[in-house]
Design a protein around this nucleic acid. Structure first.
Lengths: 204, 204
DNA sequence: CTACTTTCATATTGATCGATATGAAAGACG
DNA sequence: CGTCTTTCATATCGATCAATATGAAAGTAG
């Protein structure tokens, strides 16, 4: 049961690439959402039989959450962008442009896995829904703090609505995901990002 | 089979209020989405047995689409707001504020039925998904046309990005739906609406 | 080789999905 | 009343859901 990190393992070896299988699962969840993706679709796409999936990932919920973690593990995570940006404005613009690009990739489904996979679920999936909601709120809180930093440092006026600005950026990103799913291309989303930043308060 | 619009009907009368039952179905679809709402939940909430549902509404898909039509039948539809507004700016503001209020009603689920109920579906529901996508695109096209009207009339500068402005408003509305589902209150959404309008181009 | 451990392939579990078959119940007609 | 039409209540349909029981297969260790 215990997957040894190091050391030789005894017993029959794994016949599939765990990372590759998880990536395929992520693509399916990305496209059809958590409840919209069935185990039979997963086994087909991952090329792994049900018992192996359960042995390797636990159950469907844990597989999904691990796929979400994979989705959020890239170098352009919102948290990363916020941490690396010099100003809140730069952070917001980077988040919007990165989203516009990431939501319209050729090799991936349209939209955002985090924004679309558990928007509407049955009552049975309320806990998974809450988990992703928490991730979204955390990103928003990070951005709000980044804006508040600029206000505290005098780079933005004292009467700036930090929560409103951060909420607006988050809303635009979530909305761009839906527009991408409705067929909007990269240029269109980048144009929306530009409009969204037009109202950003000037530096003091 | 034919539900007579007028004239006396023979046979056993309906034992339930069709409109009231449809409203209850709408609330369920609003909260849990199209595929996340089961027939057994619908029969419970509507207080109607399965054969009666199928006799009165067809099947689950047609019941859902009729619920969507009910949702979009109010006096504050986006199409209505756009048609009645004097300027594109007023239309956009009305849409944003009406959404902020409608997404945070006390007697209704959080968010927007149109924005959330078919964001991620299984492959089997692709047609329903496309139907709602078409409605969203139609609203966006109406708003784009309204902006273009203002440009043509000289009320907005000629270099205004009508598609970008309209797409931004649509994205904010879709995103506000997700934020409302994540717990955002009415004041928060109204603040986001205010920020969203801050970047609107000035009247010429 | 044999013993041991782990994974894999097949078939299947109980539960729930959307949708109905069946016949009784309820009203309008004559 | 009896006849007709429609709806209702019960039970259930085949399909699919997520999740497993079972035993064979594939390696390491001795």
């Amino acid at each position: 049961m215990e997957t040894a990190i190091a050391g030789k393992k005894i017993g029959r070896p794994l016949s599939f690439d765990r990372d590759a299988a998880l990536y395929q699962a992520m693509l399916l969840f990305w496209r059809h959402g958590y409840e919209g993706t069935s185990l039979s679709e997963l086994t087909s796409a991952m090329a792994v039989t049900p018992p192996s999936i359960y042995a390797a990932f636990g159950d469907k919920k844990r597989l999904f959450l691990e796929a979400v973690r994979l989705y959020l593990s890239g170098p352009t995570t919102s948290a990363q962008l916020i941490a690396q940006a010099e100003t809140a404005r730069a952070a917001a613009m980077a988040m919007l442009e990165t989203s516009a690009i990431g939501f319209t990739g050729e090799a991936t489904p349209a939209g955002c896995l985090l924004a679309s996979s558990t928007i509407s679920c049955s009552a049975a999936a309320a806990d998974v829904q809450a988990e992703l909601s928490g991730i979204r709120l955390e990103i928003e809180a990070d951005l709000t703090a980044k804006i508040a930093d600029d206000v505290a440092a005098g780079r933005l006026a004292a009467d700036v609505d930090a929560a409103g600005l951060a909420g607006h950026v988050m809303a635009v990103i979530q909305g761009m995901s839906t527009l991408a799913r409705d067929g909007a291309g990269r240029d269109k989303l980048l144009g929306i990002a530009r409009v969204a930043m037009a109202g950003w308060p000037p530096a003091t």
